[in-house]
Design a protein around this nucleic acid. Structure first.
Lengths: 242, 242
DNA sequence: AACGGTTTGTAACAGTCTGTAACAGGATGG
DNA sequence: CCATCCTGTTACAGACTGTTACAAACCGTT
């Protein structure tokens, strides 16, 4: 299904994640949800969108495989990647309260997300109080993640931002059970650059320099983390949790 | 109560806002909440904090008068202003799901916020379904606001960011019933600069240049909006809603 | 295996933003 | 009332990032 080289490390099988671990460390029992919400599997080819800004808001999506980017669009054509989503991430929550989705979500590779119709979720919240709690916590965690990145983008120079980004990616892979020392970036330099508020050439330079400094070994999208402590020192410890 | 010059325009009296208008255009009946939640008035002098990162998360706060800034802190001392809050804004939601607050909230001037103990809010949600809906919508709106600013910060040059910021402030004043053409900025250049991911000198220069171009008339913290359309053109229409 | 298009890497150059400094205007407190 | 502090403004030199251009590697297709 995936044209790219597979993620490295002892990856749990897809089926082992019928109960996906969700944002903020909380776990949600998808089987319990299934009893109240009709879940539909949606596959997306690389480059294909789950939804686009302006389309009617009807469902949330739980990433099951692959990865996605969330993009904010301006009327005048400006575009900004605001985040990257992997397995276990709940997508679409930012549009709760609106009639239409407020952003685009696009698959970075061949991916799969589970569609959870929002009206059904609302009804399910009445029977599953944890679901309501989970939804609220997930939104709060999203706010914290965004603010944490605002801190990094506002206070770190280009190279340090890239270091923080790599640490964040590594932590997320580790959280999913993959290797945090050796992984494949799923996004292009341009997407990375957009997210980090840089140009893709600057990202290239920063990665090359981190390689020269032996903090990482990078070749195109394949990254080896050689000196995590060194990277942490560059990024200022926290390295923008997610 | 307020050491600064008062906000300009036909301002509604404080008492007229017993039912404050809240984020996302939704209104919430504070009197209905009072029946379930003990509301305590909290006054804060300029520079004083409502709460600080690390303190136990116990309550949300509804801004009633004055204004506040939210600040993100890094372990190594870096600091980032992530937002400014005015009357009607619900504060503390980002820490829902945590044991401790994740950021600092500091009064920019002598201000007042109403304390809403979180356990009581949770109980009240059982009796007031709109309260739950409101909470979730407020969080989603916060995510959208943050992402909208990520777009502006990532794609606009310094001068344009400042233009977008002024338009945002103006829109918020207008939403509260104040003049959108003539207002007093409540935050220092340093706070503005931090929020916009610039240096305070750059903000000063940008404001001076917008003045030279006759888009605004600015003198210290007092701003006249002379050419809103011109500013909108600079900021790329949207001007980061809030 | 060859092809075209996309992505990535490198370089030189230009430009914006920053850092430093000096100064001015208010505000604060004695 | 004066001295001091803080905030804000402006100027200039310099650093970092953005721009532009080009080459190489990779991808998917023919």
């Amino acid at each position: 299904m995936n044209a790219q080289a597979p993620v490295i490390g002892t990856a749990p099988t897809t089926e082992a994640f019928a109960f996906p671990s969700l944002a903020n460390g909380d776990h949600l029992d998808i089987e319990a949800i299934r009893q109240h919400v009709p879940v539909r599997r949606c596959k997306h080819a690389a480059g294909q969108g789950i939804y686009h800004a302006g389309q009617p808001f009807q469902a949330l999506y739980l990433v099951h495989a692959g990865s996605y980017k969330t993009c904010e669009l301006a009327d005048d054509g400006r575009e900004q990647v605001t985040g990257f989503r992997m397995r276990g991430s709940l997508i679409g929550t930012e549009s709760i309260g609106l009639k239409n989705y407020s952003c685009d979500v696009i698959a970075l590779e061949d991916s799969e997300a589970w569609e959870l119709p929002y009206p059904a979720i609302l009804r399910a919240c009445l029977h599953l109080p944890e679901l309501q709690t989970y939804l609220t916590s997930a939104l709060a965690a999203e706010v914290r993640s965004n603010r944490s990145w605002m801190l990094s983008l506002g206070t770190l120079a280009a190279e340090r931002r890239v270091a923080a980004f790599l640490l964040d990616v590594a932590a997320r892979y580790a959280h999913l059970g993959y290797s945090a020392k050796h992984f494949i970036l799923r996004m292009s330099r341009i997407d990375m650059a957009s997210f980090l508020a840089l140009k893709h050439e600057t990202v290239s330079r920063a990665l090359s320099r981190l390689d020269d400094l032996h903090f990482i070994a990078v070749e195109r999208r394949e990254v080896h983390m050689l000196d995590v402590d060194g990277l942490r020192a560059m990024a200022g410890t926290g390295a923008a949790l997610n």
